[in-house]
């Protein structure tokens, strides 16, 4: 059902890398780790072929849309690249990322791009914002759902646990954790056991984190598997009474070498050589023709 997503994901990952290369700075690791999650949310379907998230590609301001809050605002390039696939951002504009006057700010900025759902960038704040949105829909008895994508690192913020304790009854709120195992300086093993923590706070938890200390190079990560992501989110949508936490294991830097599981790319743009290595892997997924086209952009 969601096999086609791999091609979209590969294009998104290429664009992320090209944007960051062009900008000369930015967060490669965290953008690549959540790319498959964002692509699946926007383009994935459940087993009956129903779209996971409600939105209208032709009308970003449609009232009935579900809301997506990217709490890990430093992964903005991933969101921009996905929204370009949706049709909200012209592809050529992606390469203005982080430049003076660009609508594509270094961290997610709704003031510059009004169709984004909120600004984020200071870690841990998106969960509360998403919670406020979910509360608003509950007050109005509207069916809209709210999806918050948070990094594992930002779950160390105290505010997240204030929000976790306060989300009782908000079954229209799904927190998706991009568990890539790293914060800037360290592993995120201090969060272990994350699943139990959210359960103790009254959330319906789907998935389980693999701590960094137990990760092996060849492990299958559900957070890079569109079928698994769609399956978890579908399960979350059916939950009543409780907010849901979906834990998805990912690799920092995504599943692409040389970035995969390498913390040095947290806040560093790729070089030409690194891009070449990554593109060889991604070209295999989306075909050479498109690959060459992207290389022309790169050369330009």
């Amino acid at each position: 059902m969601n096999n086609g997503l791999k091609k979209i994901s590969a294009r998104v990952k290429k664009n992320i890398l090209l944007m960051l290369k062009e900008a000369g700075s930015g967060h490669t690791g965290g953008s690549l780790s959540c790319a498959d999650i964002l692509v699946t949310l926007y383009f994935g379907s459940d087993s009956e072929g129903k779209k996971l998230m409600r939105y209208e590609p032709e009308n970003p301001f449609w009232e009935g849309r579900d809301r997506l809050v990217l709490s890990k605002g430093h992964a903005a390039p991933a969101l921009y690249a996905v929204l370009s696939e949706v049709g909200y951002i012209p592809e050529e504009e992606l390469f203005t990322l982080r430049k003076l006057g660009s609508r594509l700010q270094g961290h997610v900025d709704k003031q510059m791009l009004p169709f984004l759902e909120t600004s984020t960038g200071s870690l841990g704040q998106g969960v509360s914002i998403g919670k406020g949105m979910a509360l608003s829909f509950k007050i109005d008895k509207k069916p809209n759902r709210v999806y918050v994508v948070a990094g594992d690192g930002e779950l160390q913020e105290g505010q997240v646990w204030e929000a976790a304790r306060n989300a009782k009854g908000l079954d229209n709120l799904t927190l998706i954790v991009d568990y890539n195992g790293w914060s800037i300086d360290s592993y995120t093993d201090c969060l272990y056991p994350l699943r139990n923590k959210f359960e103790a706070f009254g959330w319906y938890v789907i998935g389980k984190e693999i701590p960094s200390s137990e990760r092996k190079e060849d492990m299958h990560m559900d957070g890079h598997d569109p079928e698994k992501i769609a399956e978890y989110i579908t399960e979350a949508k059916e939950v009543r009474e409780y907010p849901q936490c979906v834990i998805l294991n990912t690799w920092k830097g995504g599943d692409i070498y040389p970035f995969k599981n390498n913390p040095k790319y947290h806040g560093k743009a790729p070089t030409d050589e690194e891009l070449e290595i990554a593109f060889q892997q991604l070209d295999r997924l989306i075909g050479d023709a498109i690959g060459n086209e992207y290389k022309r952009v790169l050369v330009k």
């Binding site: 909120t118 509360s128 406020g132 105290g158 929000a163």
Partner: peptide, 17 residues
């Protein structure tokens, strides 16, 4: 509850919607 940071974030989410 005793959660000023979450209260301000929640207020933001309410205002956005």
């Amino acid at each position: 509850g005793v959660s000023e940071q979450d209260m301000m974030g929640t207020a933001a989410g309410l205002a956005i919607t």
